[in-house]
Design a binder for these strands. Structure first.
Lengths: 192, 192
DNA sequence: ATAACCCGTTCACTTAAGTTAAGAAATTCA
DNA sequence: TGAATTTCTTAACTTAAGTGAACGGGTTAT
């Protein structure tokens, strides 16, 4: 499990054994049961997550309805908005499946960053990369219809369509569950 | 003009006069005429921008149509995706108004970052902040109707509605210009 | 085992966005 | 200034998403 983390890090910087041990001493690894809510609306938190195995989702509750806006699966990093802005969270984070992840908090990161400046480089690279990818995702969302978005998802993340309930997928695509059903039927129609 | 940059930086780190002079020696400041295209589709670039005065837009050309997905105004930073991914750009960046901005490239940044580690901290903080803000914007987009998005924009960035042509605003809101016209008429109707 | 509940699908209906086209208003340019 | 072009609006029509309700399959709980 640790190797997954180190492999991930090695995409950005190379670590000495000393640095690896420093990381391991931090007790980062956690196993979380399906359904666990890691962050709630209104809560203040300093925790960031890195998914080693499993799936997490971000959702809002708006007018009593859950609106899922993001999923995080293997090898993905999530730093909630409230961690950066230091304000109460506007949304929930929960585990869709039994999930193994690392949990790190801002204080730990600050300490590691000051001890090993290399880490700060990694964090910068990583957040630039995430930010750039998000830009593209957002642009793609804006410039496509719901049907195109679904077709895109089918290409880009076919696993999600399998492992995620339809109603959550629907709001992820910016539509209602009934519309997703209909849209899927329409696509299936076209194929034949 | 330089003070705007230094004020901006001071939100993240504090600079010595030495550091300020090092920055000033880099010839960052540029004045760009309305309509100038700074980045084209297919082009590789290492340049990032910081808008001091004016407005820039990002747009795609899809099936011969311009699709505007973002605007950058005073005090906003833009690092195009292609700079991070080191691939040809999928989109265009152009100036909507006469614009004063700083242009910096990855090589310069790498040099400054290694000379003054403080800068790397700032870059990390900044890109974390941008990334977090983007997340929220994207979530808001997904969970709202076009009409709500327009009302939001009216609240959050009333200046944009004044300074940006309707057709560009429309695709920024994920709809067609005709729909935006209609939607505006609908809202105006409701008010009276 | 049966009732209660949750989920996905389907249907009929409403509402709003896409499309095509035309005209009015504003801007550009000669 | 006046012609040309572009931009914005309006309208009629088409298509797709939102809404409310009902149905069936599957799971959970009692």
């Amino acid at each position: 499990m640790q190797d997954i983390l180190f492999d991930f890090i090695s995409k950005y910087i190379s670590l000495t054994d000393d640095e690896k041990n420093a990381l391991l001493s931090l007790d980062l690894f956690h196993s979380v049961k399906k359904g666990t809510v890691l962050l709630k609306e209104g809560q203040k938190s300093k925790d960031s997550y890195f998914v080693l195995k499993g799936c997490m989702r971000k959702y809002y509750i708006i007018d009593g309805e859950e609106k899922t806006t993001a999923f995080y699966t293997e090898m993905e990093v999530l730093t909630p908005h409230c961690v950066i802005s230091k304000t109460p969270s506007e949304y929930y984070i929960s585990c869709l499946e039994d999930t193994i992840l690392t949990i790190s908090n801002t204080d730990m990161e600050a300490e590691v960053n000051s001890k090993f400046p290399k880490f700060e480089s990694m964090c910068r690279l990583l957040s630039e990369e995430i930010s750039a990818k998000q830009q593209i995702d957002f642009d793609e969302f804006k410039t496509s219809s719901p049907e195109q978005r679904y077709m895109n998802l089918l290409q880009a993340r076919p696993d999600l369509i399998q492992r995620v309930p339809q109603q959550q997928l629907a709001s992820f695509l910016g539509i209602k569950p009934q519309s997703l059903s209909r849209l899927r039927a329409r696509i299936f129609e076209k194929k034949s």
